[in-house]
Design a protein around this nucleic acid. Sequence first.
DNA 1: CCAAAAGTGTTGCTACTACACCCATGG
DNA 2: CCATGGGTGTAGTAGCAACACTTTTGG
Lengths: 217, 217
Amino acid sequence: VTRLQSRTSVVVCTDVVLFGIHQDRLEVSLRPTPDGPWRLPGGPIGDDEDLDAAARRHLHALIGERRAYLEQLCTFGRRAGEDGAGRMISIAYFALAPLEERAEEDESQGWRWFGVEALPETTCDHDAVVNTAHRRLAAKLGYSTIALQFMPERFTLSALQGVYEAILGGPVDKRNFRKRVLALDCLEPLDELARSGNHRPARLYRAKRPDRVEFLT
Amino acid sequence: VTRLQSRTSVVVCTDVVLFGIHQDRLEVSLRPTPDGPWRLPGGPIGDDEDLDAAARRHLHALIGERRAYLEQLCTFGRRAGEDGAGRMISIAYFALAPLEERAEEDESQGWRWFGVEALPETTCDHDAVVNTAHRRLAAKLGYSTIALQFMPERFTLSALQGVYEAILGGPVDKRNFRKRVLALDCLEPLDELARSGNHRPARLYRAKRPDRVEFLT
DNA sequence: CCAAAAGTGTTGCTACTACACCCATGG
DNA sequence: CCATGGGTGTAGTAGCAACACTTTTGG
């Protein structure tokens, strides 16, 4: 028969799968644990705090006050153990960090970026959570404008294509990509060009509605 | 500043959006509350119970030991109130009840079926949870074989089409439907026919892998 | 003038939509 | 023989994948 009343403590927390893209590679941030394996950043939820707010609080502890997309992913738990370890419930979120120069102070605060294809050993099956988040993100590329959440205010189409390639893990055809993305009517060409090296400068674009993630048909 | 330690009690429970199809209409089960509005069935999670197991336990309290598909949907919460009401966390699941004759004892156990288009007033935004579940289910029709989870062991293509129409809320072309669904290679025609009225009998099919929900390309 | 990335169209194919008639049965 | 739902094929279209060369700049 199932024990319904709490004998032991219940810990409710959030874990955040923060994705970033660096050198055309999709990465997630992980924190070390004292005993070796790594874990997702996150922490407890206050009693008078909304779930989303708690996740956002822990996210901003990582990246400061920069804007970031945040979405609930799934919830997992660990049963109370006979050793007195309490019931644990974690509501996992995933977040997208805008593609800026990586701040030097980031890694100094006790966490590191890892490529999603080369995760270290993790506790609590956090690597499975990362994989779930990655699959969800990749699927969303196909039917939403979520990739724009990685972009800074002004960006080139090649940069956006690089985001798709990093997430999907393979090359994308340039002409087909530009056709598709321009047909979405979510980008606005600017008059400005990005000069960046010994080659033809690229036109800059901006998202028409940068705060909305839109769904297709 | 956020209060991180629990001063008040924390209730962790699951709510189950159980979908059924009756008379070609998609319905969900709701329980009455003492004060009038209706709510999703569900209840507390034991400290030594897995989340999925708790949802399944509450599901089987509704439909007995029949097999049913169950999937985690989302998690929502209510902050602790100043009135001493504790923090509440609910992990919502959705479930699909195989399309059988409606058992008479069902409704007598204190719950009722409601069409998804005609929900009564609900507590805790449970109607929004039902809508989220409905959208997820409708989306999954497009890229998975989830609809088969509604079907009994042997069924006709027309019955399956009826499931699609009930979920999508509109008519579906018969010939296109049959082409698509047969091309999935997930159905096996039986030698048996269903004689049911003064018209030509329909061929019966069964799912090749009834316990798997498969994803397309 | 060379290297490097930006930018641009067409063609074939596949997959989806729309659509109407005959078939088998029970009464 | 009539009513009822079961069962079948085609033609047009829209969207996707494959594919190569010219342009502009910095060095």
